[in-house]
Simulated scan of single mutants.
Amino acid sequence: MFVGGGDGPDVGQPGGERRDTAGPETGSPDIGRPRILPYSWIIGQDDARTALELSFIEPRIGGVLISGQRGTAKSTVARSFNLMTTGNLPVTLPINATDDRIVGTLDVPALLEGRWAERESLLEEAGSRKVLYVDEVNLLDDHIVNLLLDVVSTGQLVVAHAATERRVEVSFQLVGTMNPEEGSLRPQLLDRFGLLVEMVTETDIDVRALILERVLEFDQVCRTGPTKAYRLALRADRRRKDQLKGARVMITDGAVVLPDAVRVQCARVAAAIGAVGHRGDVTLARAALAFAARRGADVATAEDIRAVARFVLPHRRGAISRGGSATWSEADDATVSKALGDDG
């Protein structure tokens, strides 16, 4: 369970106010109030945390979709992770955003002054900051989904005003959150998320009590300013960021190897689960390499495949396009084990 609210303002921030807490490089706290809970204060939910870290280590994985009930802190973990790794909250696409805000529009005040100028679009801003966050992504209008699909698939944004048109190269990680009780996500967009994670309500009383303790402690920080424990949390965030950056360098430098036998296992596992197309095979290999780098290894193994399959493959089955579930089960774990050649 992640501490924080998945719907509405972030926990400990009345009215959803967002204030500076760390610089983009040093991560050292300033005298203002925090914008969001430190990443190291997040409790449990290892799957969501792992998926976000893998997508950071290997951006070609293609982003993360976090699905869960309301109040499970889906948005908090996504924003907290982005703040830790970049020093900024992510560029956010509101579900009520207009086309002009998404793809760009003319700067009317500048035009009235006789100057030609354009307002930067949300997608261009996301390209500059490398992440686009979409809360309640399953509630986006179809034409907005089509815009996203076009940009994600082509890497280009077409900005047209009157008789002018320009093409902008944009590339960003797509991070989305949704409550499946409020509707499903179009299969075409679902397939564009490299990893899928399900978040559930914590049922262990001791863990719930610890979550409450962290929430109240963060409330106190928001009221009175940084405490010793809060500053220690920021230091822990900096250490984790450095570890993840080191793993990312390993991937960028080609320092992690995918042996031929493991490559074949990726294809075998994807086929056994029933993945449609080949994107699942490719993403499975990239995620396995990232998982190996995350643990500091220079060779990906079958165990890395086993660790990431439940994030990569559940939303790629043919049944999804027919309204099937993207839930991962113990039977799926058994299928993966059999495909990997485990005895029994």
Score class of each variant (00 low, 15 high):
Val159Phe: 11
Val168Gln: 00
Leu234Asp: 00
Leu232Arg: 13
Ala162Lys: 11
Pro226Arg: 11
Ala209Gln: 14
Ala162Phe: 06
Met178Ala: 12
Arg167Asn: 05
Ala233Ser: 04
Ala160Glu: 15
Asn146Cys: 07
Gln220His: 15
Arg235Met: 12
Val152Asp: 01
Gln156Val: 15
Thr154Pro: 02
Glu217Lys: 12
Val152Asn: 00
Asp219Ile: 10
Ile211Ser: 13
Gly155Arg: 04
Val175Tyr: 06
Pro226Asn: 12
Arg208Asp: 08
Val207Arg: 14
Leu190Gly: 02
Ala209Tyr: 09
Glu202Lys: 08
Ala209Trp: 08
Thr154Ile: 02
Leu190Thr: 00
Leu189Gln: 07
Val152Tyr: 02
Leu148Asn: 00
Ala209Asp: 12
Asp219His: 15
Val158Gly: 00
Glu198Asn: 10
Arg192Ala: 06
Gln243Pro: 00
Gly155Asp: 03
Thr227Met: 11
Gly176His: 07
Tyr230Met: 05
Thr177Trp: 04
Val249Thr: 08
Leu232Met: 04
Pro187His: 10
Phe218Met: 10
Ala229Ser: 14
Arg248Val: 03
Ala162Pro: 00
Val197Met: 09
Arg235Cys: 04
Val151Gln: 00
Glu213His: 14
Lys241Phe: 05
Val215Trp: 07
Arg240Ser: 01
Leu232Lys: 13
Met199Thr: 15
Ala160Phe: 05
Val249Ile: 08
Pro226Trp: 12
Ala247Glu: 02
Val249Met: 08
Arg192Trp: 06
Leu216Met: 15
Val215Leu: 11
Ala229Gly: 09
Val197Arg: 08
Asp206Thr: 11
Gly176Ser: 08
Gln220Ala: 15
Ala163Pro: 05
Arg166Cys: 08
Asp242Asn: 07
Asn179Cys: 06
Arg214Asp: 05
Ala247Ser: 02
Ile211Glu: 14
Leu196Asp: 06
Glu213Asn: 12
Leu210Ser: 13
Ala209Gly: 07
Glu198Gln: 09
Leu234Glu: 03
Val200Arg: 14
Val158Ser: 08
Pro180Cys: 08
Leu195His: 04
Pro187Ile: 06
Leu232Phe: 01
His161Cys: 03
Leu189Arg: 10
Leu148Ala: 00
Asn146Trp: 09
Thr177Pro: 03
Leu157Tyr: 03
Leu244Trp: 01
Leu212Glu: 15
Ala236Trp: 06
Leu157Ala: 04
Leu210Asn: 13
Gln156Asp: 10
Ala163Asn: 12
Asp206Ser: 11
Ala160Lys: 14
Met199Ile: 13
Asp204Met: 05
Asp204Thr: 02
Leu196Arg: 12
Thr201Gly: 06
Lys228His: 10
Val215Cys: 09
Val145Gln: 09
Ala209Leu: 15
Asp191Thr: 11
Val215Thr: 13
Arg231Met: 11
Arg223Asp: 12
Arg248Ala: 07
